[in-house]
Amino acid sequence: MSNLVATLYQLIEASESSHFRCGIILVSCKDLSVEGLETVKRDLAHNSSKEEAHYAFDQNTQVLSIFLKHQKLSDTHFHALLVKDYLQNANLLAGSLLIASFEECTRATGQLLRSMHHAVMELAGVGEIKLFDPQAEDAGDSAASILLVNHDEAVNEFLSIYLERKGYQVIVANDGVDGVQKYQEMTPDLVITDLNLPIMNGYQMIERIKHSDAERGSKIVILTDKRLEEDVKKSFALGASDYITKPFSPVELAARVKRLIS
């Protein structure tokens, strides 16, 4: 198992300076022969000639690792898309992909690499791309949880991707009733909700939530299309902590969420 980690470690050590960022992609593959690995290398290098990449394959665990010099997480992620496409077409993909990026590659300690290696083998599904967050690894699983109640699927999808990247645990509910139910199951630290919800509208849901546990009192942020003054007034009267109208700036939303949770 440490075969792969050792190889990666060597790559980092071998660099003349350790102050560059690097990206790492780990992916479970079908068995690759040495020639097979060479073909993969050649074809992938052909697809994306710009980046400097190193490939290693661990026979025991059948994990392919790709080490990308000077790559940020976004580029690493994009590279992973190409890798996945290629492996899928070549019928070599056996599991999911795990990607990580380090500001300075010396931060990729053996400990982290090992847990990453371990994580990629644990991943369920085929062809899913997951992010490996070194910080979360340090912090354990005390991530703040956010309940997202919105009928708008595009917003739900985006915010769960976006906020999960920021290190929060995100739970999604599609309507008011679902929202109350999930709230009672999870008691999140923060609720982001729309006011236009089917079955039970946002106000009714907030009242229910406030009613169900008065002493805990999760913070509530409204994210809605409603721009009427009465709605703003009423929301704050019901105990909302913030009111954001759509279209919204995700950066601003994240900042407000951060302030409310910390």
């Binding site: 708008d152 236009n196 809605t224 299309d225 409603k226 721009r227 009427l228 003054e229 709605d231 109208t245 759509k246 279209p247």
Partner: peptide, 8 residues
């Protein structure tokens, strides 16, 4: 319509 449904 989504945006309109919140318009003043």
């Amino acid at each position: 319509f989504q945006a309109l449904s919140g318009s003043k």
